[in-house]
Design a binder for these strands. Structure first.
Length: 1085
RNA sequence: GCACACGUGGCGUAAUUGGUAGCCGCGCCAGACUUAGGAUCUGGUCCGCAAGGGUGGGGGUUCGAGUCCCUUCGUGUGUACCA
């Protein structure tokens, strides 16, 4: 029987889905194993063959661990907020929600086809209100926290407030804004609410602050540093400029040191850890004050080379430095102002472009050298960054290349203070001598010391003289958290009298509202400002819901679903039950002194009766409610969470004794006195929400936790489950997230750990980067002279024949060619399918193709990124269609080491497919399935156990390409042995099943098993089968192998040596000489 | 510029710790079965007739180096005025 992969794969995929084979168990005695994949953004282009690479690898591990008896958590979901869907929405008006849902459907279909063992019941989507409710909740925790440097932890803001109330901020050692003024407890008490808020803002971990941001006008949003590539936006390639904006930011810098030291205990790739280290950019140095001559100002600089203090020949300030104006002398005023304006407007891109262009102006002021008292000029230069260190440097041109270029350009003095110790002399050094090696010269008390000693002495001297102190600086900046965009999580903040307040937990999720357009408003406000009536209404004192006001926490905020519920409510009002009718008349007649509404919408519920003033809900439970106890309880809980109380009556109670019911209601009303709107809230005052949304990294910074408890309605994940699943044991993802996502997720994990919400402080124990798969594009050459003529690659430089010249319509063979992309799917091994080419596009229908002598048309090729526009996209679906998913899985692994980047090329795929066919054939004889119970031979056992050993080792070191080879060797050997024995083939199927799950399930069930192979125990290697009777020893002379000798494996070392030395061959190579040394090497020794 | 990674047949690659370089697959060559093959199967395939030589180049450590060290060239990735 043929290997019918299509049928087999569809059947087993259905089986796994129907039986929920891969559901992880939250309550298991098995050891847990958590394998996580990179969170995909569902783009419109769907998956190409590069995407599944990591997923296949992680799936192999997940399946392997199941065979090894682990309780495996292997989830998948979508990072479904993001720019592309929004850009598409702007262009087409299509709601990003719809685009996203469609894209997800495509992804899901593609993923299912590859046979991944995901637990789909745990799927999460960051754009789901159920999910982002908790993203918002975490934001509020961060907002309500400050970083205590004494405990080296984030703590809740209430501890800070109590300290302020008791002692002011004198004893507080916090990671906060630099310019916080000190105040006493008495002063704190006198502060207005706004003042208090402003002070707290300087301490909050999530804060609203003025910051220079990388503003991208085209995208209408600021971008984080890691979203900019080469001075333009990573997405779309738009220019980026610097802009001072009020922005939500996160104090990730508080964690800089912990993020750095935490790397040491992580089993992550070195290159990735290195990238994070560089990004955090710790540098130890000294901050040092220079007194400005004839003035009371000091300039504080940061330097890593305090030893070169005597080499300072000028001081440079960043154009944004706060002292620029004060230090500029009248005669320099015009120049300085012009320079500062120009520098401020210079966009990031311009700065990138003329990186070597040196600009600057003198201020006319001078500082005094702290040791010599000499006057040193103060300059302004944009090579000094305002945001790093103190925004000012002491320039030592002889020993810093940037200072050197600046000094050379403006003719400033260069003072040499370090003499190299190596064999170069100072005069031989071109430019500056930056190395931290050498002896100090021209440096007073530092003379003769080497650089290290000089640094220590200089710092000591600086500290005794109270000029400054040792200081550590980080390159890492606080992370900008606000995006002026629509398709993201709303930031759960509203403004009352210009003071930002966070929503309370019960008011979450703050659902993304509907807008008419996905563009900024005319006033440049973010798209959310377009949402009419989207304002905060305090729940405690204003009418909620109803026909005219949409509740602010209306789920999905979709008009359609709101209208649906509203219509439903109207309908119910018209079709009241008998009991409802009786009660309605009663509560209206009996003057209860409060106004009731019937069938009124509160949140996502329609309640039977409600008094909005007293927040009392009356529910009438018909017969149907007998089976809906749980639903009712849930509903009550929900209503209570937004401040309502609920009283229930059955139909019978009402129809039998309405008086009793009314008195019960009266009693209840006394319990809950009327809350009348008062003061500024009278009439249901409302406040504007924050209009910016969260960045893409918000939702992805904690998704690994949500998978542990994806349906939890009362928390982001229960502590019981986060304690059980703990950390991700293996994460496979691309290195492109090194300085973005992977840093932020570590930050949030540490934060949640500080506050005691989770027990771990690092998200993933082990991390592997899968390499990128690049596309391979094909080109055809088109003649410029005659656009209808295409020339095969080998003909490009060859003259045309007489006949061809006629056909083409040229007089001579002189022509120019341009290469144009051609769909790789109509090219095989660079040979063009000519018919397919003609039908590919209308304009090529009558194309003239000048071919090689064998009538083939050859294309040229190039390695490029896979993209639609290059016609080089190969989708996993194409491969699965032609060869099956098992072949695709094996082939992607076979391509090379997981971490290496590679070019997509299907040249070898037939080999892999052939292997599966060979495997299939082992189970069949003359078209009938035949496996015997015969005793396996020694050779067969050796083949099997050798393979088990190799595969186990390979999987454990993530060497998937070599295991595919080993499977091939095994099947080749078993084929030679004509082996069809159950005792051999069944263990082999288990070994192979993580790699090729469908074919192995099929053969496993054909072998008579009724249980899925997924949980079959992985076979163990029995070393005794690997022992040999004899061994072929290689004999080397001077390290070079010359010949082999087969000897019995039972021989002892001296016996072997005797045998070898007495052999004729050895004598031949020795040529009568005596060997100096004889070395025997043994396996595993 | 700096940091990291990587250079092995015609190609993708293998050689876990320094110990027989080239496994497995593609491609290619030859053969079998075939009306036919882009199907299937079998055999061969680093270079050289051989001795021997071969892991980008040069040097070193070692009895022995693809593997370790130095240097140089090339490719890729990340980062960029971070004082």
């Amino acid at each position: 029987m043929e290997y019918n992969f299509k049928e087999i794969e569809e059947n087993w995929q259905k089986f796994w889905a129907d039986n929920k084979t891969f559901a992880a168990n939250d309550d298991s005695t098995k050891e847990k194993y958590y394998v996580l994949d990179m969170f995909p953004y569902p783009s419109g282009a769907g998956l190409h063959v590069g995407h599944p690479l990591g997923y296949i690898a992680s799936d192999i591990i997940a399946r392997f661990k199941r065979h090894k008896g682990f309780n495996v958590l292997h989830p998948m979901g979508y990072d479904s907020f993001g720019l592309p869907a929004e850009q598409y929405a702007i262009q087409t008006g299509q709601h990003p929600k719809i685009t996203t849902e469609n894209n997800i459907a495509v992804y899901r279909k593609q993923l299912d086809k590859i046979g991944f063992s995901f637990d789909w019941d745990r799927e999460v989507r960051t754009s789901n209100p159920d999910y982002y409710k908790w993203t918002q909740w975490i934001f509020i925790q961060i907002f309500n926290s400050w970083y205590n440097k004494n405990t080296n932890k984030a703590e809740t803001i209430s501890s800070l407030i109590s300290e302020f109330e008791a002692n002011g901020n004198a004893n507080i050692n916090a990671h906060c804004d630099d310019d916080v003024k000190s105040f006493t407890a008495q002063q704190w008490q006198t502060f207005s609410e706004k003042e208090k808020s402003d002070v707290l803002m300087a301490y909050r971990m999530a804060y609203l602050g003025e910051a220079y941001v990388n503003w991208c006008p085209q995208l209408g949003t600021p971008l984080a540093n890691d979203e900019i590539k080469d001075g333009v936006s990573e997405r779309g390639g738009y220019p980026v400029e610097r802009k001072l904006m009020k922005q939500w930011s996160m104090r990730i810098t508080a964690y800089a040191q912990r993020l750095l030291t935490g790397l040491d205990k992580l089993d992550w790739t070195d290159s990735l850890k290195e990238a994070q280290r560089n990004w955090i950019g710790k540098s130890e140095g000294t901050s040092l004050k220079f007194k400005v001559a004839n003035s009371s100002f000091d300039i504080e600089v940061f330097t890593t080379r305090p030893d070169t203090i005597f080499g300072v020949s000028f001081v440079t300030l960043a154009p944004e430095h706060e002292l620029v104006n004060s230090l500029t002398t009248p005669e320099n005023k015009v120049n300085v102002e012009a320079y500062v304006t120009q520098a401020k407007n210079r966009s990031e891109r311009e700065r990138q472009a003329d990186i070597n262009k040196i600009t600057g102006v003198p201020t006319g002021s001078f500082v005094e050298h702290p040791f010599t008292g000499k006057h040193i000029p103060i300059w302004i230069g944009d090579y000094v960054l305002a945001g790093y260190g103190t925004g000012a440097v002491m320039a030592v041109p002889a020993h810093d290349s940037r200072d050197y270029s600046f000094a050379k350009h403006f003719g400033l003095p260069i003072l040499e203070v370090v003499e190299p110790t190596s064999n170069v002399t100072l005069s031989e050094v071109e430019g500056s001598y930056d190395a931290k090696e050498g002896k100090l010269i021209n440096s007073d008390f530092l003379n003769g010391l080497d650089v290290k000693a000089a640094m220590k002495k200089a710092i000591a001297e600086i500290e005794t003289k109270n000029l400054g102190k040792g200081k550590v600086n980080f390159r890492l900046r606080d992370a900008v958290f606000g995006r002026q965009r629509y398709w993201g999580e709303p930031i759960p903040i509203y403004y009352k009298n210009d003071i930002p307040y966070a929503l309370s937990e019960s008011e979450l999720p703050l659902v993304l509202p509907e807008v008419d357009k996905y563009l900024p408003t005319e006033d440049g406000e973010p798209p959310l400002a377009r949402a009419t009536n989207w304002r905060y209404r305090p729940l405690s004192n204003s009418p909620q819901g109803g026909e005219n006001t949409k509740p602010h926490n209306w789920e999905t905020a979709g008009d359609s679903s709101y209208n649906f519920t509203k219509e439903k409510a109207q309908e119910l009002r018209k079709n009241q039950t008998e009991a409802e009718q009786i009660l309605w008349e009663a509560i209206r007649k009996k003057s209860l002194d409060v106004k009731f509404r019937r069938q009124h919408i509160i949140g996502s519920n329609t309640v039977d009766f409600v008094s909005l003033e007293t927040k009392l809900v009356i529910e009438v439970d018909g017969k149907i409610h007998l089976d809906k106890k749980e639903y009712d309880a849930e509903r009550t809980k929900e209503l209570e969470s937004v401040g309502f109380s609920v009283i229930r009556f059955t139909n019978e109670e009402i129809t039998n004794d309405i008086e009793n019911v009314i008195s019960k209601i009266k009693l209840k009303l006394e319990e809950f006195p009327k809350v009348l709107p008062s003061g500024e809230d009278l009439g249901g005052a409302s406040y504007p929400f924050e209009h910016s949304t969260m960045p893409g990294w918000a939702g992805s910074s904690w998704y690994f936790l949500r998978y542990m408890d994806p349906h939890n309605g009362s928390g982001f994940a229960s502590i019981k489950l986060t304690d059980y699943w703990k950390q991700v044991d293996l994460y496979i993802g691309g290195s492109e997230h090194a300085t973005g996502h992977l840093l932020y997720v570590r930050f949030w994990t540490k934060f949640l750990n500080d506050l005691g919400h989770i027990a771990i402080d690092e998200p993933a124990k082990k991390l592997i980067n899968q390499g990128m798969i690049q596309g391979r594009s094909n080109f055809v050459y088109r003649m410029k002279e005659n656009q209808n003529v295409f020339v095969s690659k080998g003909r490009a430089n060859r003259d045309l024949t007489e006949e061809e010249l006629n056909v083409v319509g040229l007089k001579t063979s002189e022509f120019d060619l341009i290469a144009i992309h051609v769909d790789v799917n109509i090219v095989k091994n660079d040979v063009l399918d000519q018919d397919a080419f003609r039908s590919w596009r209308e304009e090529y229908k009558n194309a003239i193709l000048l071919c090689e002598d064998n009538n083939e048309f050859l294309c040229s090729h190039e390695v490029e990124k896979m993209s639609k526009s290059k016609y080089n996209v190969v989708t996993p679906d194409d491969i699965a269609e032609k060869f099956g998913s098992d072949t695709l899985r094996l082939y992607e692994m076979f391509l090379g080491p997981l971490e290496q980047s590679k070019h997509w090329n299907t040249n070898g795929i037939t080999g892999v497919h052939g292997f599966l066919k060979k495997l299939w054939r082992l189970f069949y004889q003359n078209d009938t399935f035949t496996v015997t119970h015969d005793e396996p031979t020694k050779a067969e056992l050796k083949t099997l156990h050798k393979t088990i050993k190799k595969i186990t080792e390979d999987i454990e070191r993530f060497s998937f390409n070599t295991s595919v080879s080993n499977f091939m060797i095994c099947v080749n050997e078993l084929g030679d042995q004509k082996c069809n024995k159950r005792a051999i083939l069944e263990p082999l199927l288990i070994c192979l099943s993580p790699y090729a799950p469908h074919i192995t399930e099929e053969l496993w069930s054909l072998c008579g098993h009724t249980e899925s192979i997924v949980f079959a125990e992985f076979p163990h290697c029995n070393e005794t089968y690997l022992v040999e009777d004899s061994f072929t020893y290689p004999i080397s002379f001077n390290g070079k192998m010359r010949f082999n000798m087969e000897l019995s494996a039972t021989l002892t070392v001296p016996e072997i040596e005797k045998e070898v030395m007495s052999s004729e061959e050895v004598q031949k190579y020795l040529e009568g000489k005596t060997p100096k040394k004889i070395i025997e090497i043994f396996k595993n020794s």
